[in-house]
Amino acid sequence: MLPIINVIFSSLNVHARQNFARATFQFVILFQPILLSFLLYMMLRGSNPVHAGEYIVVSSGLMNLWSSIIFSSAGDIDRERYMGTLECIYVSPSDFRLIFLGHVLGNLLLGLFSMVLSSICVVFLFGLQVHIENPAEFLCAFTLSILSFTAISLLIGLIFTLSRSARILMNCLEYPIYILCGLVFPISVLPKALQFIAYVLSPTWAAQLLRESMAGIQNIRIFYFDLIALSILILVYFLLTIVLFKKIDRRVRIDGTLGVH
């Protein structure tokens, strides 16, 4: 068990430091949460809705978390390829999946920091109140949300192993998820067909659960149903990651083009 933790921690440590040195990531972690929160605050300013603080914290926090995944985990494989290190870490005696998990956790850690920054902004800069009405349920929802973002990061990162345009494609994944998963507005504003797609994406449930537990749960049965749905989706994502890795592993060994860009 200890060597596994060692691999994950070493990968996390190196990767988080390396990523934080990148200008784009510095923007996503340090500046985007403040600017996004400010944008939402200014839009809400005229109407003074209830739970404005909670709305801004969850919305900008999740948007930032997603951006940090898109601009890091999704492009990590491509960056390793560009630096010429992908083949080395792929064939190293440590399991590539563990190394990549360390990458993802490092990105998530920095992404979570941006959520904290956004909360600080909302409370101290804009003077809004942020309450957590159901702390125990919030903790549950928060933990599952982190797990769900870890699962989806692994899945996207692996899929992008096959693409040589990952860096371009990752730029195109930001807004569709903002829209489909209702990170800022409820998915009820979307056409019915799109709502079905939204329900197979774990951030949809994560956003719903975080919002509910912060603003106050209306119906505990629905809340637990959402919690179970999110747990099932996380499990499916992890299973998909395992199956996909086997397929991708076989393909890159046959094609021999892992390091070609």
Binding site: I179, F185, V189
Partner: peptide, 8 residues
Amino acid sequence: LLCKYIYH
């Protein structure tokens, strides 16, 4: 959609 939602 964000404007539509926030400004009702």
